[in-house]
Nucleic acid binder design. Structure first.
Lengths: 165, 165
DNA sequence: ATTGGAATGTCAACAAAGCTGACGTATTGT
DNA sequence: ACAATACGTCAGCTTTGTTGACATTCCAAT
């Protein structure tokens, strides 16, 4: 002990605690992506395809530009993914009605089938972790994660959660 | 048991709740890596270097094989990273004493300096999130993350946390 | 009506970081 | 003596990210 710069830090802010949190994030993220990754690697898809599929499912009729803001990649990178998904008939791209420059994206039936398969796998692990940790832990989990986001992404996160229910 | 998932599914296990948890993980992980990423991109290093540096700092004198198990990558992939770190004088590799096949890794002073810079940045965000969410939330956060890990990684995670204090 | 800028798409080239497979060397354990 | 282990390395491939340049289409403002 005796770390001068941590003087005001109560116990839960100790260096060691924070370090363990960092490592927990690292290890947990691996578990988090593992099940969908395993499904995807049997096809010609990767995690980038999963992310696109997830957020198209979540916000049907979203535009490419909106998706770019959520995923935080370049349009070239997203376009490569979308191109294969469209070519394979999993995603449909429609020209916007009010603004015809925009492309509105939605899953086809086949795309929705894959989305369900992926999210079922990911949800199962999430639910098991939630069950094991208990409801209060889950509330805390969400609270810390939300505080960890960049402000602009936090806004998007909240907006997505509020839209369709 | 008789409590099928419909029965046992109290509010916090609802589909929507779980989906929001998935998205929270995705957005939060971006925040989690952002600060170190920004530091690293000014040098010729990436996230893979950061991970190696982190766990070498955390478990000084760890072997290559041990590091492989923690990071979950191939030795070729890790070797590429270690080679540059050793060449740049950030990491030191010593032949093992009892078993001379092993290489024991530790940070040089310069490596430790970079490690501190990176972890200070990452810790600052973590601490801020912890402070904003409160101690009970932090406990729940850790609990859920731990439950989300693969069992073998959870064992390693626990072992790392127990070693040096 | 023309023009400037925004949204989208595409081509090309490149980098980081993962992977497999094969091979070599030193060391250790049986 | 021989098999297994730990490590390093070469070669080649994949995914997913990056810039930069350029065309198209369309909206909106002059």
């Amino acid at each position: 002990m005796g770390e001068a710069r941590l003087e005001g830090a109560s116990q839960y802010l100790s260096d060691e605690q924070v370090r363990q949190g960092i490592e927990a994030m690292f290890f947990a993220y691996r578990g988090f992506t593992r099940d969908p990754d395993r499904i995807l690697e049997t096809m010609a898809y990767g995690r980038a395809h999963h992310r696109a599929i997830h957020f198209i499912a979540r916000s049907p009729s979203t535009t490419v530009n909106n998706l770019l803001g959520i995923l935080g990649v370049t349009k070239q990178s997203l376009n490569r993914v979308l191109r294969t998904l469209i070519a394979d008939g999993l995603v449909e791209s429609r020209v916007g009605e009010s603004d015809k420059r925009e492309r509105h994206l939605r899953l086809t039936e086949e795309g929705a089938r894959l989305e369900r398969q992926l999210s079922d796998a990911q949800r199962a692990r999430m639910q098991e972790a939630y069950r094991a940790a208990g409801p209060e832990a889950v509330a805390g989990f969400r609270k810390v994660l939300e505080a960890m986001m960049e402000p602009d992404l936090r806004r998007k996160y909240v907006a997505i959660g509020e839209q369709d229910p």
